[in-house]
């Protein structure tokens, strides 16, 4: 265990950033998201949840894949460069840290996504324990411990100090110069976090019946009508979600060529699953159902029972009309045919 005073963090960040890119929760125009760090940025480790999750760092909202350039009769094709240098993501919460493992199950299986894979191979993750979980948090339902968030190293804020415990060699190398510390105050902080986690309003959700066996029963449940009624089909829930993984690939006409890029897509949108004939999901009910069935039924039935939700509660806090996965779990869960 190492420690550093919160006041000295800027120096640690500057040191890391002198050799590689560093991403951290940074405030811009009043909102906090993961951005690349430099001295002039305002880091907000006190903010529990960034608006968008940390997934952005590995799977950005928009990225170029390929450029075509047309000159006369020739077409030149250039693949976008892949990440080649190590970088650090600092201050990732336990829920977001777990989400990377879930994304791996999509992007690192055959056919492997090389853009994502390169970033994963080079990313060093420093997590941060959650001093004050919020009412929307329900990570513990998925076996995530907000007091022990994992990654290459984990950090805890106790008073004016930041304690860091490395878990891997790459994590240890980052903080090798810091002063050694006694772990007892961290142990006390962990106990406090666990005590709050137990009192969270959504701490004990009943997930029985969310599995492949009950697929049709869940799919046909009449409750979807009511649950999806107010849905705007906006996509806020999918874009703030650390485990939503769908994307679209589009071409941008540059005038003398094409830039092929990928961007996040949302199953909540009317042109998602648009095929030559039509969109197979005609109504918002069907789109809404897709999002939650994917997370709670389809994904676990293909991935050893792992749910594609880490309980970060962003959809709970951010849906403009207060629809969310907790509501779905409560309405459909706990039932066994």
């Amino acid at each position: 265990m190492k420690k550093i005073s919160l006041n000295a963090l800027g120096a640690l960040f500057a040191k890391i950033a002198s050799t590689m890119k560093l991403y951290a929760p940074i405030e811009k125009a009043g909102q906090v998201d993961f951005y690349e760090w430099n001295e002039s940025e305002k880091v907000r480790l006190d903010v529990l949840k960034t608006v968008k999750s940390a997934k952005d760092v590995f799977f950005p909202q928009v990225e170029d894949l390929l450029k075509f350039r047309v000159e006369g009769k020739s077409i030149e094709m250039n693949e976008a460069p892949k990440c080649e240098d190590d970088f650090v993501v600092f201050g990732v919460r336990g829920c977001d840290a777990r989400s990377f493992e879930l994304l791996d199950r999509v992007f690192l299986v055959d056919p492997r996504d090389e853009f994502y894979a390169a970033r994963r191979a080079h990313g060093i993750i420093v997590t941060l324990a959650c001093g004050a979980p919020e009412e929307s948090c329900f990570c513990t339902n998925f076996g995530i411990d907000p007091a022990n968030p994992g990654g290459d190293a984990s950090a805890w804020i106790v008073g004016e100090e930041l304690y860091i415990e490395p878990h891997t060699e790459r994590g240890a190398a980052l903080i090798a110069d810091l002063e050694d510390a006694d772990a007892s105050s961290v142990e006390a902080a962990k106990k406090e976090i666990s005590a709050i986690a137990e009192r969270l309003p959504f701490a004990n959700l009943d997930l029985t019946g969310f599995d492949g066996e009950h697929l049709m029963e869940k799919f046909d449940d009449p409750a979807w009508e009511r649950l999806s009624k107010a849905c705007l089909g906006c996509g806020t829930c999918t874009f703030v979600c650390p485990t939503c993984q769908c994307y679209d690939i589009r071409d941008f006409d540059t005038g003398h060529g094409v830039t092929r890029y990928r961007c996040w897509d949302s199953c909540m949108y009317s042109d998602f699953t648009l095929m030559a004939a039509e969109n197979s999901r005609h109504t918002q009910l069907q789109r809404f159902r897709q999002r939650f069935m994917h997370k709670l039924v389809y994904f676990p039935s293909n991935n050893d029972g792992l749910y594609s939700c880490v309980g970060c509660g962003r959809c709970v806090a951010k849906c403009p009309q207060n629809l969310n996965i907790v509501k779905v779990i409560k309405a459909l869960g706990g039932k066994k045919a």
């Binding site: 811009k28 125009a29 909102q31 998201d33 608006v51 968008k52 909202q61 705007l232 089909g233 906006c234 996509g235 806020t236 999918t238 874009f239 703030v240 949302s266 949108y269 009317s270 042109d271 648009l274 403009p320």
Partner: peptide
């Protein structure tokens, strides 16, 4: 630029807007 660059293009603003009542928005129509 500071404000709008935070936009995640979720379209919540458009979808909730009573003046945005087009059956299909141009930005959704391939």
């Amino acid at each position: 630029r500071g404000e709008l660059s935070k936009c995640i293009r979720c379209n919540a603003c458009r979808n909730v807007c009573p003046a945005c009542s087009c059956v299909k928005c141009v930005f959704d129509n391939p």
